[in-house]
């Protein structure tokens, strides 16, 4: 399978603190790849390096076939990103946000209009298209924010804990969107600390204390560790049995 992300010994140090310790992994085109770990395991650091928001200390990293050291700005045209903190403009309407993000990714007016209509149909928001984002419930904001992050049809979309703080029903709807997107050939790189969400991913990396402890499909990992769920796998990795 064609690789869209390749990281070899990706390391990030903040002073003496090692946030990412020689991470090596790769992600294939169209894959849904999950980075799992407790808070503070180094997931956000890893995602921020790949998006070009943070410079790595060392390691060889290519995203969409480009080098993160030298081609960060070109990478930015080929990726989408949804950060942990909500990042649409609360004081703009749904349509205005779509227009703005479409515009800065260089989509022509005609395409922006078409995308707005498509999104409105898909998410069923035509009725409230002129409402300010700030007035929408969190689940709505998250779905919109994701749809806007993939509006310019990037090679890869990075989702940093996209479902934290939303109810289980909205989380399921959100994962439906992720599946649809992946089916269109967009690679999805998602971090989460909800272990049940790992089951939705095709392949996962489990991180603890800045290191990758295990990589594989959820089924393989469960078999390898003799566990009933990814949650059990995680417990075994994070707290290995003594003796």
């Amino acid at each position: 399978m064609e690789k869209v992300i390749e990281a070899v010994d990706m390391t990030k140090k903040f002073g003496s603190f090692v946030a990412n310790d020689s991470l090596t992994f790769n992600v294939g085109r169209g894959e849904i790849f999950g980075l799992l770990g407790a808070n503070g395991a180094g997931k956000t650091t890893a995602i921020r390096i790949m998006c070009g928001l943070l410079r790595p200390t060392s390691g060889k990293i290519t995203v969409a076939g480009m080098n993160v050291y030298r081609q960060a700005e070109r990478i930015k045209r080929r990726i989408g990103y949804m950060s942990q903190s909500f990042s649409l403009y609360e004081d703009l309407t749904i349509l205005e946000n779509i227009r703005f993000y479409g515009g800065i990714y260089g989509l022509p007016e005609r395409v922006i209009r078409r995308k707005s209509q498509e999104l409105a149909e898909k998410l069923d928001f035509w009725r409230i298209r002129n409402s300010l984002i700030g007035s929408l419930p969190p689940g709505w904001k998250q779905k919109l924010s994701f749809s806007i992050a993939v509006m310019h049809r990037p090679d890869i979309v990075f989702l940093d804990e996209p479902t934290s703080g939303v109810d289980p029903d909205t989380r399921r709807q959100f994962w439906d969107l992720i599946y649809e997107t992946a089916a269109e050939g967009i690679t999805v790189f998602v971090t989460t600390h909800y272990m049940d969400e790992a089951e939705y991913c095709e392949r996962v990396c489990i991180m603890a204390d800045g290191r990758i402890e295990a990589t594989g499909s959820p089924a393989d990992l469960k078999e390898l560790y003799g566990a009933g769920s990814i949650d059990d796998v995680f417990v075994k990795i994070a707290r290995p049995p003594r003796g």
Binding site: K76, S83, S85, F86, E90, I104, Y105
Partner: peptide
């Protein structure tokens, strides 16, 4: 503060833009 600047920083918006 709103965090939207980080979002802009992962887009093709250059700093002079």
């Amino acid at each position: 503060e709103a965090g939207t600047i980080e979002q802009l920083n992962v887009t093709p918006v250059r700093k002079y833009h």
